[in-house]
Design a protein around this nucleic acid. Sequence first.
RNA 1: GGCGCUGUAGCUCAAUUGGUCAGAGUCCCGGACUGUCGAUCCGGAGGUUGCGGGUUCGAGUCCCGUCAGCGUCGCCA
Length: 595
Amino acid sequence: MLRTHTCGELNKEHIGQTATLCGWVDSIRDFGGVTFIDLRDRYGRTQVVFNPDARSEVIELASKLRNEHVIKVEGIVRQRPDGQFNHKLSTGEIEFVVNDLQVLNECKTPPFVPGQKDVPGEDLRLKHRYLDLRREKMLQTLQLRSRIIKTMRDYCADNDFIDIETPILGRSTPEGARDYLVPSRVFKGKFYALPQSPQIYKQIMMIAGYDRYIQVARCFRDEDLRADRQPEFTQLDLEMSFVDSDDVIGMIDGLMKRLAKDILGLDIQLPLPRLTYDEAMARYGHDAPDLRFGMQIVDCTEIARDCGFGVFKSTAESGNFVRGINASGAASKFSRKRIDELTAIVKDDFGAKGLAWFRCEEDGTLFSPVAKFFSEEHLAEIKSKMDAQPGDLLLFIADTWEVSCKSLYGIRKRMGAELELYDPSQMHFSWIVEFPMFEQVAESDQWSAMHHPFTAPRDQDLKDLDSDPGKTRAKAYDLIINGYEAGGGTIRIHDSGIQQKVFGLLGLDAESAQERFGFLLDALKYGAPPHGGIALGIDRVVMLFAGLDNIRDCIAFPKTQKAYDMMTEAPNLVEPIQLEDLGIKVSKTNANSSP
RNA sequence: GGCGCUGUAGCUCAAUUGGUCAGAGUCCCGGACUGUCGAUCCGGAGGUUGCGGGUUCGAGUCCCGUCAGCGUCGCCA
């Protein structure tokens, strides 16, 4: 080792000792005579002092030091003078007096310095990620990530889970997200697919008798990115045999309790609250609601049915819904202009036809541009149903169930943040359960799997599989943290007969099901135990535990919104010979898309 | 693919309604300074305002296109 200690290690216990430190120059304070340098590494910062009585070569060399040079210093640990302790540093009671200095490597003038107050633009950070990762915040987040994953692994190991790796080069399966494909050189014209998740492999492991499996698994989905979505991401993938929903949920409850305690020092109550899918949609308009605040959706369709406002009345009469939320105390904070902005959002983003609003005045009356279409009685009914108090703002969407859900969810989410209805550091864990097995494919009588085609229906719903597929509820559960889907799982079908039936409903005939999933269907016939599991989005969990608002900041080398790696410039062109080897001819290139 | 925000010095940002608006801090270069820890002080260098058109007497500012980053809808079993 070039060093005897790290930059976060020395303290008053070491006073008088000689030591050698290595690190990056974090800042320089040159007084002509004495010069101070903060030396930084992963572990901390140590103030390094160059005194005027040092050897002249050392002083000469020190005067040439610049930010981010990598140096090695030998010297003596000394207590700082009285009143000059730096309580922000773990090493703040001592300083390191240099006898000898060696510049291990210089640093070009960097585009930005890790210690600067203002965070540089994200494109610059991604291009020079090696500099960005030196920033304290990035270091903390990646350390937090490491601790979270370790806690997950420890917890699973304590519960007899076995960690098994599954292939990255797999087979493309229908449905789901777009696959990332890898061409085969040997089988020209054929492709591997990178796993969207290790779903099928872990089920096979159950059939093989490895009754508790986990994997910290990299997953790949070629879909458009979001703040909480990257093309490659990491899951804690977990599967158990001889279990039902409650067993898996209970196992994850325990994991969340341990994570909250070990990582955040929080005590959370178990069992975590559960909400059915139907309740979540009715109250919050979404299957991953942020439950840190109320502002629940209220259905006013019945009042609307016989009111004088044509939009409301016709909506109710056509079998659609008039629902609203009470933005408590928002009347003064939301000007006419801000309401217009909300209206634009629900129209543009969710296809709503409009946004009706009422303001509850000081005297308790409801003011609204459309109030004139309502009788006193109807206004009173609305006020009572919405529990409107003076200063409240009521917002209504009259539309289909789907549009009203999306719109009100969107508004609620925005208002909750803007009105500061919750403490951003608060953590709320919950489960959404009893998802529908199927959802109707738009404008057709075709069904698609809400989760995936191996999801088991609830036992009491088996009878509906033939008669009323839309009514069947699945043994599916999503873990929600602060309005984010942090994980989701299901109990799987372990009966090949039921599996065939579900495939049938999904429009997969026996032949094509056999063609695509034959190996799984076969395996199910060779003694498959009842089993189920879950996958947690580790990047999202880290994001939430770190209090961040995007997962790029919890990933060492993330990609941009176009799935581009600004540092390595991937994806990129390959040599013609490589394509030739693969038997691939590129017919269309996007010359405009740089670089 | 749609909608929106952003793009000005290496970096972070500023620049009334289109009119000495090319500016600050920091970084960089040179100098001063023996106790700072966001050191301080003096001096200097540094920009074709992302790119391409257009409107105008005049564009960083307005319009159109385009590129990039971000947010979002679609999409993500």
